[in-house]
Design a binder for these strands. Structure first.
Lengths: 147, 147
DNA sequence: ATACAGGCTGGAGTGAACTCAAAGTCAAGT
DNA sequence: ACTTGACTTTGAGTTCACTCCAGCCTGTAT
């Protein structure tokens, strides 16, 4: 599979694909005799893994680490599991954070629906400029973060 | 409330707080006669809103837009609602993306648990280097993105 | 034969979101 | 009076994750 086909399949640029290879997000891709990239199934699998991890917000550096472990063979199973657990925990936290913001948003949108109808914006606890009724919840979010 | 207290309360740097003010993520903060920032409850509410939105991955530019609307008064209720809806939809998509990656991860971690015990890594569909059994799901993720 | 499409490399440039540093102000403590 | 420490501004620097570009190669079509 050529780079063009791969980047069309996954809607990512050729530059990104080459960049991923350069920095180790994916291992060196198979080449034709003319030095042209010819992605094998394994190469594709790596690309998919990389894209999925990046989509979930995993930093490039971490994907690189994981790939390095994969290339080092069987004695890295434990390390790989631990790395993936770490990644998973990070994603879980991120999802929780987003879900709390989602609740805030739903509440606000609802208020604005009413405001659009009545012409008046009312909050359970009123602020002149930017109202937050979920202050406590928000602070909680923040405190949980780095503790 | 001084900048120090605010940044300690929210575990964010003074520089970030000043930066947020500079670019409009939060409106101009109240000052003492000596030109020192003295955050009022409204200011704090704005800071909280900003942090929550940023935590959920909302771009700075979008928070700025929302703040501008808030400062323009009642005739922007509709615009604010629409903006928040857009933000919400984006977050929902992001959460879905993360949840799919989470499933992939749980599956992989499970496989590695077994591999650590048996010394052999087995996948439903085996690849030598980096195994992906959820190819279809992953491709789906990607296709949904920009369409 | 020559144009052209598509690929290659190395290195520089970009945009977002901070982050830091220099130089100055000000109030309180010794 | 002087030092200390917390604050101020302006503007430059950093990090991350791409993204673009110049200059080169090569196989195929006209």
């Amino acid at each position: 599979m050529t780079i063009k086909e791969v980047c069309e399949k996954y809607r990512i640029s050729q530059d990104t694909l080459r960049y991923y290879e350069r920095v180790g997000v994916i291992p060196a891709v198979h080449r034709t005799k003319n030095n042209i990239r010819d992605y094998t199934d394994q190469d594709i699998a790596c690309v998919e893994n990389a894209i999925c991890m990046r989509n979930a917000g995993v930093p490039v550096e971490m994907v690189v680490e994981y790939m390095k472990l994969c290339q080092q063979g069987d004695e890295t199973f434990l390390a790989r599991r631990d790395l993936l657990r770490e990644v998973r925990d990070g994603i879980v936290k991120q999802i929780e954070k987003c879900q709390r913001e989602l609740e805030r948003l739903e509440y606000k949108i609802e208020r604005y629906e009413t405001a659009v109808e009545t012409g008046e914006l009312v909050w359970d606890r009123t602020f002149s400029l930017e109202p937050e009724t979920e202050m406590a919840a928000c602070e909680e979010n923040i405190s949980e973060e780095k503790v």
